[in-house]
Amino acid sequence: MINRVNPHLVDLTTVARSKAASMNKSKQKLVGLGILLLMLAGYTLLPPELQQLIQLQPDDATTSQNNSDGQRLNGQEGKSQQLDTNSKQQEAAKSAQTEPTVRSPTNADIENTAGSRAAKEFGQNTPATDDESRQKIGSSQRSPTAASKNSSGSDQPRGPPSNQGQRSQSSDNNRQSPDQTGTLVHGLLQEISKDQYLSPAGLIYGPGSAEGHRLDHLRRHVQNQPKRPGKHGVFDGGMQGALKTIDDAFRRAQKEQRTTKTIDRNRTIYTVDLGKRIGFVGGQDGGRRRNPMARRVRLVLEGKRVITAYPM
């Protein structure tokens, strides 16, 4: 009798145990729900850019192939990935709190991947598409004739010649001196020996002329001389503009493009039509004709050595 266990008591303990188990289960459920709610709250608190990044985790190829599939992925798998990333972020935050001096690799991964994705989406892809669209717009909107008109028309004279003089002077002031560039004179010429300067096209400017140097002689043709009898060709763009134009004329002359050529002993005289404004006609004659624009260059050479060059 003593050893006999009361069945009622047994029932009571089992009932209590089962109740405790059920309580534990409900607690676990509540804790799980709480965690889920916390994750959702964390997600909603995230900035919209990061939310988009988390949503765009599915493969871009599949999203580009089929948007509806992508939307489905965003709706189903996307959520699990969101949760995954959120948990990672929370873990990272926890580790950051516990180990403030050690950078969490998971966090770094997130930042790197997010950063690279952001760069792809906002930094790299956008300008490329913009450039492409600009090119497409440019090519579709501008016809070849319009382009050629623009290229030749933009340099056409506008306003009085005094403005052109100012324009050439200002560009002359902007030219790079030998000191600034270190090696190039007027931004173009390379000094190959004492007082000998080589242009990109292979022309040589050296000592000579009444001015003492061919470059000083050329300088006469970057400013008008209104009192000079006859015509006086003036280059646009100061010394640098003049040197570029002369090089351009020489290259065309070598290809015999719109060029007349006269050889007199060891001298070659080219007249090259550059097909666009390269200066204007000054001097007394030019002044009488309101300084018409010049499209041609007269180039007097001895071998590759420049004797003189001027617009006409």
């Binding site: 006469r220 009898p229 005289i269 006409m312």
Partner: peptide, 18 residues
């Protein structure tokens, strides 16, 4: 550095004062 007195324009280069 231009001449004070000239006889004509240059028949060779076309732009100079002789």
């Amino acid at each position: 550095m231009s001449p004070q007195h000239s006889i004509d324009f240059c028949p060779l280069c076309g732009g100079g004062l002789c």
